[in-house]
Design a protein around this nucleic acid. Sequence first.
DNA 1: GTCCGTGCAAATCTTTTGCAAGGTT
DNA 2: AACCTTGCAAAAGATTTGCACGGAC
Lengths: 138, 138
Amino acid sequence: MSAPADDLDLIGRHTAQRASVVRALIDHGGFVGAQTLHDVLKARGSRVGLNTVYRTLAALLDADRADVVHDRGGERLFRYRPSAEHRHYLVCRACDLSTAVDADVIETWAEHLARTSGFAEVEHTVELTGLCPQCCGS
Amino acid sequence: MSAPADDLDLIGRHTAQRASVVRALIDHGGFVGAQTLHDVLKARGSRVGLNTVYRTLAALLDADRADVVHDRGGERLFRYRPSAEHRHYLVCRACDLSTAVDADVIETWAEHLARTSGFAEVEHTVELTGLCPQCCGS
DNA sequence: GTCCGTGCAAATCTTTTGCAAGGTT
DNA sequence: AACCTTGCAAAAGATTTGCACGGAC
């Protein structure tokens, strides 16, 4: 079981609202939209404002404790990141199941590109989607 | 010089509006937002509706004649793709200068992932940003 | 002539912001 | 007590949609 308190230290003051947002994000286990997370919290009885959800997620991103991808509708989906290390994910387009993938190749390539392109402060985003074994069979 | 007529064949009927949208996208040379493109067209005197710009861009994406990236504000930026082949770009965060990069490594990695992950129809998006030589010096 | 594309405006949707009230340190 | 955080509502911004008209085939 994770300890949201550790994460809260990274994103500001300890409040019940932020704790419940972080807990809900962790419990969800995969990528989830801010509005969906808000709905989940409401269903749980947590009276948390939508903008608090947004701000908490933004703070987690700032602290490198969350990853973000764009879904096809332009909505941003967030996923909790237990460690502070950079990660990439393969997400199922049908059920949203997401799995972290080994992307050392990408990191190496990105570093090489940073050195040879003349560009500074090179950052990269990699989004992988597909149909998971469960979904491509059905 | 490119021939928009060839592109129009891919996206539906030949109309002056679509031609001007495609022409403007090509002339721009880099990534540009739909609304900005609309402004450019207005400045040129082309009375094209914003939704026509959106539809034309969507049609180009469908036909693999355009690439899209997300800027930090959530806006989608489009770039004309002369050939139908898959490409990746390194975009300057300051001036939007974009250059295509050699991403064979990525393609190979993505294919490998598709074979080993159990996922089907794996697609990938790679977005690279940095500060170009012009901008990181200033 | 038929059907698709266009334009205008309104609607939709996500995300951000203003401000007073309440909680944290 | 000082300052940050919350919540509500409204604003902002991008993209899509409804519908009547006009052009393409």
